[in-house]
Simulated assay, not measured.
Amino acid sequence: MSAQRPVKIAIVVGEESGDLLGARLMEALQGRLGERVSFCGLGGARMQRLGLCTLFDISDISVMGLSAVMARLSIIVRRVYQTVDAIIAENPDVLVIIDSPDFTHNVAKRVRKRAPHIPVVGYVSPSVWAWRSGRASKMKVYVDELLALLPFEPDVHRKLGGPTTHYVGHPLIERFAELRPADGERTPISNDKKVLLVLPGSRGSEVDRLLTDFGETIGLVSKRFPDLEILLPAVPHLEEKIRSGVSDWPVKPHILIGEEAKYAAFRRAHAALAASGTVSLELGISGIPMVVAYRVDWFFRRLKQLNRIFKFAGVTSMVLPNIILQRNVVPEFLDEDVRPAALRDVLLLLLQDTPQRQDQIDGLRALDHEMQLEHGGSQSEAAADVVVQVLNRHG
């Protein structure tokens, strides 16, 4: 790649978490390539602040679950073709697709077919280790290099015949200081006043399925701890839905908006009740004992009836810390097992100085070692390394 030649990079994301990854990647690439790099594609507010002129608002396509996808299918399909046309017209030096595989991978397939000379980097591996493992080999047709956030994923793709995969670390490895309490921020568990984090999910469908159960659970827990303080971090676009949903809770939570308030709550909390997802990894790194619950979309519930559990590396779990640690450290409840009385029983153990609480804290400490990059450094820099290598090979 010429030292002076302008470089154009297309980035396509489909939701807020992808926008955060995309923004950090843009910053790392700007640090490497300077003013000669420009960006095009699809992104959210963070990427736009760094100079990306997005094709449309990503809220058009940020949906999860078959029911929600079907309701907006026509606009999603239209946006796929709009995005493909725009990328072909821009003719970038590389296309980076970030997460949201139902959208971004459909874009990549069509770009590969119409412009096979454009290399494609996939950022965030679909969960082929959990279900639909055949996606790995199919992905190899239109993804040249894959950037994985979880340490076991390169080995999974090798076994499944997927694309060349690099573990670039999870963004959370850069946020240890924000997630972990300084002296005095988290009071001793022996104190009477307990602080409980409640995290019902970052998507509307998750909140709809869990908020009632979580409210009933809080009511039961508060009978044992009358001074219980509830902290509920909420993403801005779900604030009104959540405020309406908790209006009849027996204990009113403090609803927190914004990343800074969220991580301040993490540093204070003694335990957490959370939906399954990346937040379980945040809690694990913060050292907060948790119980995880999840109710799946009706389509996946039917799939689960055919294959009720999946196993990876000998672990039966949907919780990321459990999968990474290869043992069930965090208790989880799925579908019909999500019962307030059962969730209460676990939380009461985690909100006191019990062997169950200490065992989980001890288990979660091992996440640091498992998730660190081999040669240190930041996640975004490791991702930028691979993108620059692809540019050099195709330069």
Rank of each mutant, 00 (worst) to 15 (best):
V7A: 03
I11K: 00
V13N: 00
E16W: 00
S17F: 04
D19S: 07
G22K: 00
G22F: 09
A23C: 09
L25D: 01
E27G: 07
A28N: 05
Q30L: 07
G34F: 10
F39R: 01
R46Y: 10
R46I: 06
R46H: 13
Q48E: 15
R49D: 11
L52T: 11
I58V: 15
S59C: 11
S59F: 06
M70D: 03
R72P: 08
R72W: 07
R78Q: 15
Q82N: 08
A86Y: 06
I87P: 01
I88G: 01
A89Q: 14
V94N: 11
L95M: 10
I97F: 05
S100Q: 00
T104N: 11
R112P: 06
I118R: 10
W131T: 12
Y142N: 08
A148I: 07
L149T: 05
L150Q: 07
P151V: 04
D155Y: 03
R158C: 09
R158Y: 04
L160T: 11
G161D: 02
H166Q: 07
G169Q: 03
L172P: 05
I173H: 07
E174M: 05
E178W: 09
L179Q: 02
L179A: 03
A182P: 00
I189T: 05
K194A: 00
V198S: 00
V198C: 13
V198Y: 00
P200C: 09
E206T: 13
D213C: 14
E216S: 14
I218H: 04
L220M: 14
R224P: 07
P226Q: 08
P233A: 08
V246G: 09
V246E: 08
S247W: 02
V251G: 03
K252C: 09
H254C: 09
A265V: 10
F266D: 00
R267E: 10
R268Y: 08
A271E: 01
V279A: 14
V279T: 09
S280D: 06
G287W: 01
M290Q: 15
V291P: 00
A293G: 12
Y294G: 10
D297N: 15
R301H: 15
L303P: 09
L303W: 11
I309C: 03
K311R: 13
M318F: 14
M318L: 15
P321L: 14
N322T: 13
N328W: 02
V329M: 08
V329R: 06
V330L: 08
P331L: 13
P331T: 12
F333H: 15
E336F: 10
D337A: 15
D345P: 01
R357F: 08
D368S: 15
H369I: 14
E370F: 11
Q372V: 07
A384G: 05
V387Q: 04
V388I: 15
L391A: 03
N392S: 15
R393N: 13
G395I: 12
